[in-house]
Design a protein around this nucleic acid. Structure first.
Lengths: 344, 344
DNA sequence: TTCTGGCACTCGTAGGTTCAGAGTGCCAGG
DNA sequence: CCTGGCACTCTGAACCTACGAGTGCCAGAA
C-alpha cells in the first residue's frame, strides 16, 4: 500500500482531493477544466488530465463513459478519508446547539431519541443510535417483586438507566422473607458489577438457602442470568430515512435495498457492531459486508458515559458524502451523549 | 348524497367497480375496450364510454389527458369502499399463518413487533401499530423500590404487560417500613383500576401517614399520577417502509413527504387517534388532514384484549390500493393480536 | 328510450435523428 | 515535465414523426 501511494506525488493527491470535493458538492462527474477553475492548482487542464489518467490507472477514480468527467471509486474515497481529509470540527454555535438540544432529555429513551434525530438533522442522512448495551453496563440495582404467590417480577436497572424486566414463574410458593433475603444477597454481590460478570458472583448463592427454597432461588437466578446475557435485546433507533430521497437519480433501485436493510435490526446491529472500539470507523461502499448497503457509506463511533464505549452510533449515507463534515458531526454528537449519560 | 347515487344506475356502479379493480391491478389508466374485455359487462365499449362520461361528470373518475383511460378519484374510491366492495376474509391457511406467527411472541414488545411486521408483509404496505395505551389499561401492580436513602424507583405494571418506571427524589430519608406500608396501601386501592381512575382512589392516602412522612408520600404519589397521566408516552411501531418504493412512478416527489410524515410520531399518533372506536376506518387521499399523506390512504382499526379497544393499528398505502384485501388483513391481524393480549 | 357500430379526432409515447458541448487523449514544442 | 492545440468521442437535449390507444359523437338498430 505504501508503494502504491508513493507513486502518487503530492499534486496527484491534490487532484484526487479536489475531485472528491467537487463531486460531493455537484453530484456530477468532474472534468479537468472545471477542476482547474475551481481550485487554484497552478497547472493547466492538460496536466491535470495526465494526473487523472494516472489516478484512473491506479483505480482511484473512474469514468462513467468515455469523454465524461471522473468520479471517485470506493478506493478513491478510502484514500481521501485516510490521508487527504481532516475531520471538520463543529463550530461553536453548532456545539452549543447540540448541547442544548440533548440537555432537554428526560430519560434514556428520550436521550436516544433526541440523539438520533439530531444526528440525522446535522448530517442530513440516515442516523442510527444503539441503546447503551447491557454487556458493557454495570448493575445499579436488582429488584424482586412478588406479584402472586408463585409469581415474581424481576427488575434489572443498569448504570446507564436501562431497565429490563422479567416475569418468573416459581416452582412453589415464595415467602416474603425468603424473597427479601434473596434480594439483599443478590444486590450485595452484584451491584456495581458488569453484567456478564454477575453470574460468577452468584454461584454459591443457592447453597446459602434452606433446602426447600432452593428451587425458587435457582429459578430466579436462571431468569436473571438469562436477562443479563440477552444480547438479542439490543435495541436501535433510527431517524432521517426521508433523507434517502436525496440519494441518487436512479431511484427505486438505489433506495429500496437500503430501506429493506434499515428494517432489519439485525443488519444494523451487525453494522454498528463492526465499529472499532476506539476511534471512528468509516466503511465505504463495497467494504460493507451487507449487500443492500453496497452503495452507501457508514460512519460510526462508540460512545459511553465514561471513557469506555457502551454503545455505538453512526450515520448511513451515499458513498458520495461529505466525509469531513459527517465525521465531525458524528464525533461531536457522540461526545455530548457521553457527557449526558455520565451526568444522569 | 343519496340523490347523487340514485343518478347512478347499477351498471354505472359496476363500471366504477371494474375501473377501480383494474386500475389497482395494472396501475394504468383503464379504457373502455379493455374494461369490456376483462369483465363481462354484457355491453359494448361505446355504452361503457357513455357511463364513464357520466361518472366523470359526477367526479368519481378522471382522465389524466384527453384520450387516455380513466383513473378513479378520491371520491370514486370512497364510493367503492362504502358501497361496492366487501371486506375480503382471509383464507384459512392465511389465518393459521397469522395465528402461528403471533403466537411465538414472548412479551409485549415482541408482540407489537411481530404484529407490525406481519401486517406489512400481508398488505405489502407500510404498517403502523400503536402500543396498548395506558389510559385504557388497568393497574396490575405498582412497586416501590428504595435505591438510595432518598431515591425511590416506582414501577407501574399494566394488564397489557406494559411497564413504566420513574425515579422519585424524596424530600427526606425514606424508611423501609413506610415504603412497605405505602406500597401495600397503594396496591390495595389501585390494583385492577383503570389508570385514569387511580388518582381518585388514592386521595385520602397522605392523611393516613405520620405527619413526618407525608412529604414523601405526596412526592411519590405526584410522580405516580404523572406516570398515569402521561399521554405523550404513547408509542408506535412501524414497518414496511421499503414497500414505499412500489408507490408511484414519479419518485422522490411522492415518497419524500410520506417518509417525513412517518418519522413524526405525532403525526402517526394523530392519524391512528382519528380511527373510530368501533369498526374499521378508511381515509382516502385528501380526506387525510396531514398534507404529506394527501396521496395515500389509511386503513385503521382498534384492537384490544377484550371487547374494548385499547389501541389502534393500521396500514398506510397509496390511494390506489387493494381495499378489500387490505381491510381483510387489517381486521384479521387486529383480531388475533387482541386474542394474544387477552391470553397473556 | 337505450344500446351499438362506425368514424374522425386527440394526444401521449416510443423511436429515430440531429446537434452542440463537454471532456478526453495525444503530441509537439516550450 | 508542463502546456497549448487539435482531433475525436460520446452523452444528452431538442426535435420530429408515426403509431395506437382512447375518446366523443352520431345515426341506426333493438
Amino acid at each position: 500500500m505504501a508503494g502504491e501511494i508513493r507513486q502518487l506525488d503530492d499534486r496527484k493527491l491534490a487532484v484526487l482531493r479536489a475531485i472528491v470535493q467537487d463531486y460531493v458538492g455537484t453530484e456530477e462527474p468532474v472534468g479537468s477544466k472545471a477542476l482547474v477553475e475551481r481550485h487554484n492548482l497552478g497547472v493547466s487542464p492538460a496536466t491535470v488530465r495526465n494526473d487523472m489518467a494516472a489516478l484512473e490507472e491506479e483505480g482511484y477514480i473512474h469514468q462513467p463513459h468515455t469523454s465524461a468527467g471522473r468520479i471517485p471509486t470506493d478506493k478513491g474515497y478510502r484514500l481521501f478519508v485516510d490521508k487527504l481529509a481532516e475531520i471538520k470540527p463543529m463550530s461553536a454555535p453548532e456545539r452549543r446547539a447540540i448541547r442544548h438540544f440533548l440537555d432537554g432529555a428526560v430519560d434514556l429513551d428520550d436521550t436516544v431519541a433526541r440523539t438520533v434525530r439530531l444526528l440525522a438533522q446535522l448530517t442530513r442522512q440516515v442516523a442510527v443510535v444503539q441503546y447503551p448495551s447491557l454487556s458493557r453496563s454495570t448493575v445499579r440495582h436488582i429488584e424482586l417483586v412478588a406479584l402472586a404467590p408463585t409469581k415474581v417480577m424481576l427488575v434489572l436497572i443498569t448504570n446507564t438507566g436501562r431497565v429490563e424486566q422479567r416475569m418468573v414463574d416459581c416452582p412453589g410458593t415464595v415467602g416474603e422473607t425468603v424473597l427479601a433475603d434473596l434480594r439483599a444477597r443478590i444486590n450485595a454481590r452484584a451491584a456495581g458489577q458488569r453484567l456478564p460478570d454477575v453470574p460468577g458472583f452468584l454461584e454459591e448463592l443457592p447453597a446459602m438457602f434452606e433446602q426447600a427454597d432452593r428451587p425458587t432461588v435457582t429459578t430466579v437466578l436462571a431468569t436473571l442470568f438469562e436477562a443479563l446475557a440477552e444480547q438479542n435485546e439490543e435495541r436501535i433507533m433510527l431517524a432521517g430515512t426521508a433523507n434517502l430521497t436525496r440519494f441518487g437519480h436512479d431511484f427505486p433501485l438505489t433506495i429500496q435495498p437500503v430501506l429493506e436493510a434499515l428494517e432489519e435490526q439485525v443488519v444494523l446491529l451487525r453494522l454498528l457492531g463492526e465499529t472499532a472500539d476506539a476511534g471512528m470507523t468509516v466503511r465505504i461502499g463495497r467494504e460493507i459486508a451487507y449487500e443492500g448497503l453496497n452503495s452507501t457509506s457508514v460512519v460510526s463511533v462508540g460512545y459511553g458515559s465514561g471513557d469506555e464505549s457502551v454503545a455505538k452510533l453512526g450515520v448511513i449515507g451515499p458513498t458520495r458524502m461529505d466525509y469531513p463534515g459527517t465525521m465531525g458531526a458524528v464525533r461531536a454528537v457522540a461526545r455530548y451523549v457521553g457527557q449526558i449519560l455520565a451526568e444522569s
